[in-house]
């Protein structure tokens, strides 16, 4: 028996991606179209010189506010911050949708 993708889940997933891309656009001062082009392997921390520890901390704090999650010290690692895909996977897991 195959599972038909749940429409609600797909809509939630799209909303999460939209929110996360908008947040990155806010932090980096990008146009929404530029942020929309982010792919799973698009580099973040360590790839974009302007994304320093202070900017990343701001991004995580804003993620907490906008997504209603709490990010612990131990959650924050290189893998999660390195790419857009890593950050998305982290947000998904925090929201219990992994």
């Amino acid at each position: 028996m195959t599972t038909v993708p749940n429409i609600d889940n797909a809509a939630e997933e799209a909303a999460l991606e939209r929110e996360l891309k908008a947040l990155i656009a806010d932090v980096l001062g990008l146009d929404p179209e530029q942020a929309a082009a982010f792919e799973t392997d698009s580099g973040l921390f360590g790839h974009l010189p302007e994304l320093d520890s202070m900017a990343v901390a701001g991004l995580l704090t804003e993620m907490e506010d906008r997504l209603g999650i709490v990010i612990e010290d131990d959650d924050v690692d290189g893998e999660m911050l390195e790419t857009y895909g890593g950050l998305l996977a982290f947000a998904r897991a925090k929201l219990g949708r992994a």
Binding site: S53, V56, A57, D73, V76
Partner: peptide
């Protein structure tokens, strides 16, 4: 919270383990 998080991230990059 934001400033401490920035410090922890910077410390990790430098190979230091700091906690909130």
């Amino acid at each position: 919270r934001g400033m401490i998080r920035a410090r922890i991230i910077a410390a990790r990059e430098a190979g230091l383990a700091e906690t909130s």
